[in-house]
Simulated scan of single mutants.
Amino acid sequence: MDFEIPPQTSQFEREIDRLMNSSEIQSLVREVSARADGMDGDVRPLYRRLGEHGVLAPAWPRHLGGRDADFTATVVLLERLVRHGIPQSLYYISVQIFGSLILAGGTEKQRSELLPALARGELTACILFTEPDHGSDLAGITTTASRDGQEWVLEGRKIYNLKSAYADVALCVARTGGPDTSRYEALSVFLVPLDAPGVTVRPLPSLANEQFHDVRLTGVRLPDEAIVGGVGQGWGLITRMFSAERSGLDYYVRARYWLDMIAERLVRGGRELEPHECAALDRARTRVDASRLLTCRALQRLQDDEPDIALASLAKWHCSETAQEVAWLGYDLLGLDLVLPRFDLGEPAVGPDRGWAALEAAHREAPGMGISGGASEVLLDIVAGARLIDVPEGG
């Protein structure tokens, strides 16, 4: 693995810092944090403004809205989004997961129509994979796509879908093969416009700040052009997408930011750290640094067109478990200071999800980190299975 940061990434980092600190972007961040829409806060106007500056998809080809940059530019972008209190989930799903799959497996028409719009922040996306009885076992899904003349008709229900209320289009996995077909060979991936007749999106209550959604597909009619990668080719695309989704990048950047906030809050008012606090922070910092290296290794493999699902699973497991531990460390070290503003230090009771508010939100988000994006037990099973194959006989 190459540890050198390309000059182009360093230049991009400086550009991002100037942009994030501009009064215009900071004003848009405050608007999102007000949550005036009664949900998560509509971040799309902010994304569109960032898209106008061409920073949302730096690693994509230039003719598709990117900058032909190294993957390290994407790492820098995610670090800055989180540091400046900009919600990153909708971006990560739209560009890094949805966009990466279209880039790898979409037709030329799908790439030219979807990717530039995603890079400009004008199009947002979500993923419709999980079902009420099928979470990590995607090969067991029951949503069907049956042929009716020149169209496909989708029937089914997808649940725990993040950001669906803000998305324009979804990647949906459905079963297109008959009962005699292998469950891995009978899956296809469809592009589903979320304003299509028969699509119903309802919010689900959540302990975390961001809402999940229950999406029902009732007689949703789609043309052949809506299929990504070909009929029955869904499983290969899904495993490719997992290498992007499970890089662990979105978990690493949150863990790093939360740890910085914990350390900063501990020394507020000139307080000195206790020895046990220094030790705990150092241990956590080491885990966060390891998470960054694992994330970068998984992203390097993707950039080299050598996706490794086992390596990605290891990265996601380590990053999500680390983020969870950091969130809980905040409560161990800060107690009630984690969830309450310090009025004596001039902290406001309301405002963007930064400082005390970010740590309080992290504590609520932590329980689901070992489940979302791949349960930890499933990820470890994938890693163990892949690595056991390489064990030499008698070793």
Rank of each mutant, 00 (worst) to 15 (best):
P7M: 00
N21W: 05
S23Q: 14
E24M: 06
L28F: 12
V29W: 06
V32S: 10
S33T: 04
A34G: 04
D37V: 08
G38P: 11
R44Y: 10
R44F: 13
Y47Q: 03
Y47N: 00
R48T: 11
R48L: 11
G51Q: 14
E52F: 13
E52H: 09
G54F: 13
A57F: 13
G66N: 07
R67A: 03
L78E: 13
S89N: 12
Y91E: 08
V95H: 14
F98I: 03
G99K: 11
L103I: 03
A104F: 07
G105V: 08
Q110G: 00
L115Y: 10
L118T: 03
L118E: 10
A119R: 11
G121F: 15
T124I: 10
T124L: 15
I127G: 03
L128F: 09
L128A: 03
P132W: 10
G135M: 05
S136F: 11
S136A: 07
L138G: 02
T143F: 12
T144E: 12
D148C: 02
D148Y: 10
G149C: 05
E151R: 12
E151M: 08
W152Q: 06
G156A: 13
G156R: 11
K158N: 07
N161F: 00
K163C: 11
S164R: 09
A165S: 10
A165T: 05
D168I: 11
V169D: 11
V173E: 08
D180P: 05
L187C: 05
D195Y: 13
G198M: 12
V201N: 07
P203V: 06
P205K: 04
E210Q: 09
Q211I: 01
L217R: 01
G219V: 00
I227R: 01
V231M: 12
W235N: 01
G236T: 02
L237K: 01
I238L: 14
T239F: 14
R240A: 01
A244W: 15
R246H: 09
I262R: 00
A263Q: 15
A263N: 10
L273T: 05
P275F: 14
A284H: 13
A284M: 14
R287I: 07
D289T: 06
L302N: 14
Q303L: 09
E306M: 00
E306C: 04
D308L: 01
D308M: 04
A310H: 09
A312H: 14
L314V: 02
A315V: 09
K316T: 09
K316L: 12
S320H: 12
T322I: 14
A323E: 15
W328L: 07
D332V: 02
L334P: 02
L334A: 03
L334V: 00
L338D: 01
F343D: 04
A349R: 00
G351I: 10
R354S: 07
A357V: 07
A362G: 05
P367Q: 11
S372W: 15
A375T: 11
L379K: 01
A384C: 08
G385E: 08
R387W: 15
L388M: 10
P392L: 06
G395F: 15
